[in-house]
Nucleic acid binder design. Structure first.
Length: 874
RNA sequence: GCGGGCGUGAUGGAAUGGUAGACAUACGGGACUUAAAAUCCCGGGGCUGUAAGCCGUGUGGGUUCAAGUCCCACCGCCCGCACCA
């Protein structure tokens, strides 16, 4: 076709349709039961850092495809968006630029909202909120009080990382080589009284329910399983020999290998163990060891590589199964205080750490597990501990038992004995999962709604007095918590007695905010946290999409919160997310100039290919070194600004490219060629539409139908089916490929009709294009709307539903069967579908290639998979 | 160390145990054009001049009429957790 048409202009069309959807309230979810099934589509809400990045574009494009698709399939879809708006960056900005965290945050939200709107995402914006809205944190405070009343919250003393310069608690991630990440001060371990959510009460439940979450990636479930870290073992008392000055008579250890008790050769305490601290006070050598341990502190790097070291305490314990023997008690650097009891018994022969320790301090190594089919005389433990299966030996009454049987036997044995008037051994399940400490000494977070009264202790703020609002008049010029040094805010009367009291000045961890926002979306403006009747119709979220970096904490906290809200009557289910998906990152090449500084992709020019590929700085022509492909990050400057892409190519192209190139769980590399390809496709659809319009409406009279016309009809119907299957399976790249095939087919067909007009063919083309637009609509919604309108369809494609599929067109009456000889393809043949086996066999044997391979001999065997393949075995 | 995942053309990737390389990108050739862009058509895993054929999904074995796909062993890469007793 030689006529020229104007190019499709996304800059004009996209804002037009965004306004139309808005005016039409196309994506406002209905809380009324209108007979449609509900579908809750959610993407992880962003932190309002100021700009959206390509990772957001990818995440939200995927979510939008599903939301629009499900809506087309007749679901009542809830697809909300909001802002995870509390957090430290706002306070840092306040310190650096003097702008108030609130001003900074809301300005960022406004900017990012405009960016998201320019992408044409099908959000129900009427449900938008920010977690820093008093309306939101009011309800969060209500939840806190309900949790408190239900015994789900506790206040206890805990060791925390304390930055003495900034006067704040630091998360483990913020301590680098034992120093505060911002102040550089040596971090102290401080014992502080903190608020905790009792998530560890739910350890078993949270673990067990993972098995029911079959809509989650196995990887995420595994990560959560490991994080919860269940292990079953024995809590065991060792009797301290009387000659000690501590006044204690026993030491308690936890072990998962009680079957190796006869191999025990020492006891080791954590440096943080109360008994170790007690001995340290009298014994300078022990205290020196503990101090040295603390100086190494939290730097994970050094912890990993640290040699097993310890110091003898002078104490001895009685061997629990060999009463005439004693074992030395050490303080050792590899024993953790916050797991088990903070003390272990060492069995060097069957634990590598214990073995390393024993070799260093000359302790006994007594093998008690004999590997299968091994002669006891041949078995020795050298540099490697034996941790495999085997038979117990050197163990008196356990001899000959398997490990599992020995565990049961020894548990029974210790269960019947006493030390200190207590049962010596108790079967116990231990979890790594610790309670969730939520106290933060920060301003920009949700205030914890309690008051400390000298008489009544901790008093909850009465619900009528909520919300406890953050004061606006705060300063950030000094270190520490602005709430704490505010002149008046914390001075309040006790709600019970009216005496002068102190308001809690800690705020909640921002993970609390994101642990229930998905529930709040169901009634975002209700005067209670949720309206259970409504929340229960929407939840659990049908599909949740976000980054794998939240696979543990955010998802685990949300699962806990859902259970806690269930117990306190705010929700009617235990699991928040039925389907869950973690998308891959957006990566890009990195570029550096001759000085080694990172350079933005937008500032360079790329030329050549392969070996000859090189880059220069656009402004000066200076050479640029092309570096590794890495996750887009500000620090490496390998970022592409979504705004720039939307301005240049339009939102549809950005969305299309993000969906088309890689499977969604894998990383996708942003390339100029890729976005160009999307843009080319967009114009191709546009031209196809105009070619179709040019040909006119055609005729429904099928009497002139040809095989070619039929094959186009089939292609269209099959693609509808295939794209639906692909979208349901989140194989967006595969859906895109099928749409390409349909577009190619229709374009060629349009060209053929131009050359040889055919009225029925024209009608089939038009029908195919109509279907194509509906398939494209979830991905390139603006383009689809414009074309839909030009095609003369009434209403919007967003409301048009999903195209029907004539299942009769999905099956062929003939099939092409591959013919193999000895499993190698030698030819193919066309047979009627469902052709009888003898027919197929005869035809296959008559193929020239087959006859040649047979060379006159009869085939040994012929395998026929009907309508699929023939394999002749010679 | 433990756990999870991945390895397919020049590149991203496709393939319910049944024709490996769909689709796209890059590239080469052609058409159109004064020319370029855009667009359209053709080509393409390797070896062999062509054809027939042989080889080919990280490596080596195995199961099967048939293996990218299942099993075993190994190599490499990525991610997560990590002194959890």
């Amino acid at each position: 076709m030689t006529k020229t048409i104007e190019r499709y202009n996304p800059r004009v069309e996209e804002p037009r349709w965004q306004k139309a959807w808005d005016d039409n309230e196309s994506f406002v979810a209905s809380d009324k039961d209108d007979g449609r099934d509900t579908y809750y589509m959610l993407e992880m809400f962003p932190y309002p850092s100021g700009r959206i990045h390509m990772g957001h574009v990818r995440n939200y494009s995927m979510g939008d495809v599903l939301a629009r698709y499900k809506r087309a399939r007749g679901f009542n879809v809830l697809h909300p968006m909001g802002w995870d708006a509390f957090g430290l960056p706002a306070e840092n900005a306040a310190k650096q630029t003097g702008s108030h965290p609130k001003t900074w945050t809301y300005a960022n939200i406004a900017a990012m909202r405009a960016q998201l709107k320019s992408m044409g995402l099908s959000y129900d914006w009427t449900r938008e909120f920010a977690t820093c809205d008093p309306e939101y944190y009011h309800r969060q405070q209500e939840l806190f009080l309900d949790f408190l009343a239900a015994g789900l919250v506790t206040r206890k003393s805990a060791k925390v990382n304390w930055d003495p310069v900034d006067e704040t608690v630091l998360a483990n991630e913020q301590v680098i080589d034992g120093r505060g990440w911002r102040s550089g001060a040596v971090v102290e371990q401080r014992e502080l009284t903190q608020w905790f959510f009792r998530i560890s009460d739910f350890s078993e439940e949270l673990l067990a329910a993972l098995d029911t979450l079959d809509g989650w990636p196995e990887k995420v479930r595994t990560m959560q399983r490991n994080w919860i870290g269940k292990s079953e073992g024995l809590r065991l008392l060792f009797e301290l020999m009387p000659s000690n000055e501590t006044g204690r008579t026993s030491v308690e250890v936890f072990t998962t290998r009680p079957d190796t008790i006869f191999g025990a050769s020492f006891i080791a305490l954590s440096p943080d163990h109360p008994l170790a601290e007690e001995i340290g006070r009298r014994d300078p050598a022990v205290q020196g060891f503990i101090d040295a341990f603390h100086r190494q502190g939290t730097a994970t790097e050094t912890l990993e590589k640290a040699e097993k070291e310890g110091v003898f305490t002078g104490l001895m314990v009685r061997h629990p199964t060999r009463p005439s023997e004693t074992l030395p008690v050490y303080v050792a650097n590899f024993v953790l205080m916050d797991y088990g009891t903070g003390a272990i018994f060492g069995c060097p022969a069957h634990d590598q750490r214990d073995l390393d320790f024993a070799r260093k301090y000359g302790l006994r190594v007594i093998p008690v597990v004999l590997p299968p089919d091994t002669d006891p005389a041949d078995f020795t433990v050298g540099a490697d501990a034996y941790v495999g299966p085997g038979t117990i030996y050197h163990s008196e009454f356990l001899d000959g038992l398997t490990i599992e049987a020995a565990k049961r036997e020894i548990a029974r044995y210790f269960g019947a004995r006493q030390v200190d008037g207590a049962v010596q051994g108790t079967v116990e399940t231990n979890y790594r999962l610790r309670d969730w400490g939520i106290s933060r000494q920060r301003y920009w977070g949700c205030p914890i709604p309690v008051i400390h009264c000298p008489t009544h202790g901790v008093v909850p703020v009465p619900k009528a007095d909520l919300p406890v609002r953050l004061p606006d008049d705060v300063t950030f010029d000094k270190p520490g918590n602005p709430l704490d040094r505010h002149p008046t805010w914390k001075h309040v009367p006790c709600p019970i007695c009216g005496e002068p009291s102190r308001r809690e000045t800690d705020t909640m961890d921002t993970f609390v905010d994101s642990s229930w926002y998905f529930a709040r979306y169901t009634s975002p403006h209700a005067s209670e946290p949720t309206i259970p009747a409504i929340a229960n119709t929407w939840l659990p979220v049908d599909h949740y999409i976000g980054g794998v970096e939240h696979a543990i904490l955010h998802l685990l906290y949300s699962r806990f919160f859902t259970r806690a809200m269930h117990r306190t009557g705010h929700l009617g289910m235990d699991e928040p997310f039925k389907g869950m998906f973690t998308q891959g990152m957006v990566v890009h090449e990195t570029y550096r100039d001759t000085a080694g500084d990172w350079v933005l992709p937008a500032d360079i020019v790329l030329e050549g290919m392969g070996e000859a590929r090189h880059a220069t700085l656009a402004s000066t022509g200076a050479p640029i070194e092309i570096g590794a492909i890495e996750k887009m990050s500000k620090s490496k400057r390998n970022v592409v600004d979504p705004d720039e892409i939307v301005r240049t190519y339009g939102a549809d192209c950005a969305r299309w490219f993000m969906l088309s190139d890689s499977p969604p769980e894998r990383d996708v590399q942003w390339t100029e060629a890729g976005i160009e390809g999307a843009s080319r496709f967009q114009q191709r659809v546009w031209r196809l539409l105009h070619d179709t319009l040019e040909l006119g409406p055609g005729s429904e009279d099928a009497s002139s139908a040809t095989a070619e016309i039929e094959s186009i009809r089939k292609l269209a119907h099959r693609t509808v089916q295939g794209v639906a299957d692909s979208i349901e399976g989140l194989r967006f790249n595969s859906a895109v490929a099928q749409i390409y095939e349909l577009t190619n087919g229709l374009s060629r067909f349009a060209a053929a009709l131009e050359a040889t007009p055919d009225a029925f063919g024209t009608a089939v083309l038009r029908d195919g294009v109509e279907r194509l637009l509906q398939l494209i609509a979830p991905m390139m919604p603006h383009l689809a709307e414009t074309c839909w309108q030009l095609l003369g369809k009434s209403g919007m494609v967003a409301d048009a539903g999903w195209p029907s599929v004539d299942t009769a067109l999905l099956v062929d009456d003939t099939v092409v069967m591959a013919v193999q000889v000895n499993g190698k393809r030698r030819g193919e043949m066309t047979v009627p579908k469902g052709a009888p086996v003898p027919e197929v066999e005869k035809q296959a044997l008559s193929l020239e290639a087959v006859a040649r391979m047979l060379d006159g001999a009869p085939p040994r065997k012929i395998i026929i998979v009907p309508d699929r393949i023939v394999n002749v075995v010679v």
